[in-house]
Amino acid sequence: MLLAGFCLALTGKTAAESALDQQKFIGVQAAYIFNLARFVQWPALGSSTFQICLLGELQQKLTTQLQQGTKDKTIQSLPVQILAIDPALLSQAEAEQQLQQCRVLYLMVDPAETGWALLAQLKQPQILRIAAPQVTSQHFSQVDLVFEQGRILLYLNSDSLQQSGLQVNPALLSIARQRTKS
């Protein structure tokens, strides 16, 4: 069980952020990404797969972890497909075309740093954008993973979430902290 493995990986991991090793961190990220996708009430999807895009995935470790963890899983009764996007290797048009297929966009690098202003003009607004803990920019994400007190906390950008039109499970709201632009 991927989720169980993820959770077991988190068990006893309430110590300092530095204590997390890279592998476990990747597992926790994978678990958070997958579970956050499950706590969203998705509209009817026109695709045959549920695509999770990892923006800035360079080492393919998270991609592999997610692919393994979601191999037999579905979201909205759709098989999960993991797509790693390296903005440095794609043209803007190619990246834009790929991004249109994404349901979950996990930002592993700050878009501002890459100059991906196109994210702001995405024609597909109903994309759950999750920012990794290392991403500092809070302009593009609706959910931020934040290290605090030795563990990962969830922050919701209410304005962004509201703009996206996505409905999240109230349970998620109950554990996430709210963040507004103001």
Partner: peptide, 12 residues
């Protein structure tokens, strides 16, 4: 239980 699902899922 429903509200606790996320907390339990995210180990909160």
């Amino acid at each position: 239980a429903d509200m606790s699902a996320a907390a339990m899922m995210f180990d909160q």
